[in-house]
């Protein structure tokens, strides 16, 4: 068989090329071109010389990330928080999506669907204010309750280990509604007739969820997870900064790359050092994903094969995620 070149393909699918062209150009210009600026990570930036004229200074800009052993700690924290947040927020979103689609009371359904999207609109600054009024030692909500019942007050701001839980809970709170929108769309996208037929055939609600609903969610879930993994080294800066603030005692448990960079450079902004942090995050992300890339294609293929068969095996796979 003759191998087709780019131009043959172009001739054959002119329309498809034209359809993809706007997005291609947009991404090329808006995302790829600025990547050339990452070279700043290896330069001592001079304002009058510009990005390309500034002198190189080797790996000096990366030094502060790794001095005093913090580099490892913040990298670990960033990855762990992202994994934890990924699992909880997606899990909750799936559960809520399934529940909401199973609800048939019209107004209840409508109202709850609107209400769970509300946290998405509350900025982290405001969340930060709330967090303080819940957890502070003197007048915080929890401590007031404890005191009323005669218990001993808890100083949350001296308990580093409590904060991963708190942060994770707030993250889930904020994103569950937003993420569930996608899953609700995916679930409702299932052919209504199938569901009906299954119900008439005497399938229990659990069987329907297992064999019809969950499989329909799966491709979306896989996509969502893949995308989140791509951001595994980027912390939601606002969230950490507003919830934890400047509480040094919590840093070992709560510091992520973005907060560390912000704190280190706030008094002495350095463009080269900021670029170094971005570069580090990107490269590490890339390394992690490249490593997983094979699994991904495998995963897809397997998924497609399985979707054609009955759903039983799928359920077993689902539980493994």
């Amino acid at each position: 068989m003759k191998k087709e070149g780019f131009f043959d393909e172009f001739k054959k699918n002119k329309a498809l090329f034209a359809m993809a062209a706007p997005a291609f150009i947009l991404v090329l210009v808006m995302s790829y071109f600025p990547m050339s600026g990452l070279i700043l990570a290896f330069k001592e930036y001079r304002y009058n010389l510009g990005v390309f004229g500034s002198p190189f200074n080797g790996l000096q800009n990366f030094g502060y990330l790794f001095s005093s052993g913090t580099g490892w700690l913040i990298t670990r924290n960033t990855i762990l928080y992202n994994l934890l947040n990924l699992i909880t927020s997606q899990l909750f979103a799936v559960i809520i999506a399934i529940f909401i689609t199973e609800i048939h009371a019209k107004y209840f359904k409508k109202v709850t669907q609107t209400v769970i999207l509300l946290p998405y609109f509350i900025s982290w600054v405001v969340v930060g204010v709330f967090v303080f009024s819940i957890f502070n030692y003197e007048t915080g909500l929890i401590n007031s309750v404890i005191q009323t019942f005669g218990g001993e007050k808890v100083n949350f701001y001296m308990m580093p280990m409590a904060w991963p839980v708190i942060i994770c809970a707030f993250n889930a709170w904020k994103w569950t509604g937003y993420n569930s929108v996608i899953y609700i769309a995916a679930v409702t996208g299932v052919d209504g007739e199938i569901n009906e037929a299954a119900a008439i055939d005497g399938a229990t609600i659990f069987q329907r969820i297992r064999y019809i609903t969950l499989p329909s969610i799966r491709p979306t879930l896989v996509t969502m997870i893949l995308l989140q993994v791509g951001r595994i080294l980027r912390g939601d800066f606002e969230m950490f900064y507003q919830i934890v603030g400047n509480n040094g005692q919590l840093f070992n448990a709560t510091d992520v790359i973005d907060t560390y960079v912000f704190r280190s450079l706030i008094t002495n902004p350095d463009i080269g050092m900021t670029a170094a942090a971005t570069f580090y995050q990107s490269v590490l992300c890339f390394a992690i994903i490249i490593d997983r890339q094979h699994d991904r294609e495998e995963d897809r293929r397997r998924l497609r094969a399985v979707l054609k068969k009955e759903g039983k095996k799928l359920w077993q796979r689902m539980t493994k995620i």
Binding site: V27, S31, Y32, F33, P34, M35, S36, G37, L38, L40, V51, L227, G230, R231, I271, T274, A275, A277, T278, F279, S282, C285, F286, I289
Partner: peptide
């Protein structure tokens, strides 16, 4: 582009 980006400064 989700893995690699130019970062705030160069963008």
């Amino acid at each position: 582009t989700t893995l690699f980006n130019g970062g705030m400064v160069s963008t």
